[in-house]
C-alpha cells in the first residue's frame, strides 16, 4: 500500500461517512456542517487526481461561498421548521423513507454494475492517451496549460458561463428583495 492509496481510502471514507451523516442526521445545522467536511474531502480527492487548481476552486467557491450562503438562508428561514422536525423521532428508519431507501440501493447496484461492465480501466481512449504520453504526471504543472486553454479553446463556454453567472446573481438579488420594495 503506497501513501497515495492510503490517502485515497482515507479521503473516500471521510467523504462517504460525512455524506451518510448528512443523510442520517436529525440536527439540520449539524448536517450542514458535515457537508462542509464532505466538500473538503472531495477537494483532497481532486488533489489526488492531480487537479490542484480545481481543488482550490472547490474550497474557495463551495466552502467559502455556497456553504456560507446555505447557512445564511438557513438562519433566516429554518427556525420554526427546525423545531417542527425535531419532534418526530427516528426519521432515518421511518417507514415513509423505505421506498426512497430501496430506490437508492437499487440505483447504486445498477450504477456499480454499469461501471464494472463498461470496463472503465481499459477504455480505448485511455489506452491511446497513455500511448501518446497525454497523461498528467505528478510532477507536471498544469495551471499554465489550463489558463491558456480557458482563454483559447474554451473561450465561448467561458464567456457564456460568465454571463449566466451574472444573470443568476442579479436575478437572485432581485428575488431576495423585500416585497415592499417592488
Amino acid at each position: 500500500m503506497s501513501l497515495v492509496t492510503v490517502m485515497f481510502y482515507l479521503m473516500a471514507i471521510i467523504a462517504l461517512g460525512s455524506a451518510l451523516y448528512v443523510a442520517a442526521s436529525k440536527n439540520l445545522v449539524r448536517s450542514v456542517f458535515m457537508f462542509f467536511v464532505t466538500l473538503f474531502a472531495l477537494a483532497g480527492l481532486y488533489v489526488l487526481c492531480l487537479a490542484d487548481f480545481v481543488a482550490v476552486t472547490q474550497v474557495v467557491v463551495y466552502v467559502g461561498g455556497i456553504l456560507v450562503l446555505i447557512l445564511f438562508a438557513f438562519m433566516l428561514s429554518g427556525r420554526e421548521s427546525l423545531a417542527g422536525l425535531q419532534q418526530s423521532k427516528n426519521r432515518l428508519f421511518a417507514v415513509q423513507n423505505l421506498p426512497a431507501f430501496l430506490l437508492v440501493t437499487l440505483f447504486f447496484v445498477v450504477l456499480v454494475n454499469i461501471v464494472i461492465m463498461a470496463g472503465v480501466d481499459n477504455l480505448p481512449w485511455l489506452k491511446q492517451a497513455e500511448k501518446m504520453h497525454n497523461v498528467i504526471q505528478p510532477a507536471d504543472v498544469t495551471i499554465n496549460n489550463l489558463g491558456v486553454n480557458l482563454m483559447t479553446t474554451y473561450l465561448l463556454p467561458f464567456e457564456a458561463i460568465s454571463i449566466l453567472l451574472l444573470m443568476a446573481l442579479v436575478g437572485a438579488a432581485h428575488l431576495a428583495r423585500k416585497e415592499e420594495a417592488l
Binding site: 481532486y46 487548481f53 476552486t57 467557491v61 485511455l126 497513455e130 498528467i136 507536471d140 498544469t142 458561463i161
Partner: peptide, 23 residues
C-alpha cells in the same frame, strides 16, 4: 481529466460545473 493533458477538458468543465452550482 488526468488522461487529457493537452486540452484539459475535464478540469475546465469541472470548473464550469462548480460555477453553475454556485449560480
Amino acid at each position: 481529466s488526468r488522461f487529457d493533458k493537452l486540452n484539459n477538458s475535464g478540469q475546465t468543465f469541472a470548473l464550469f460545473a462548480i460555477v453553475l452550482a454556485a449560480a
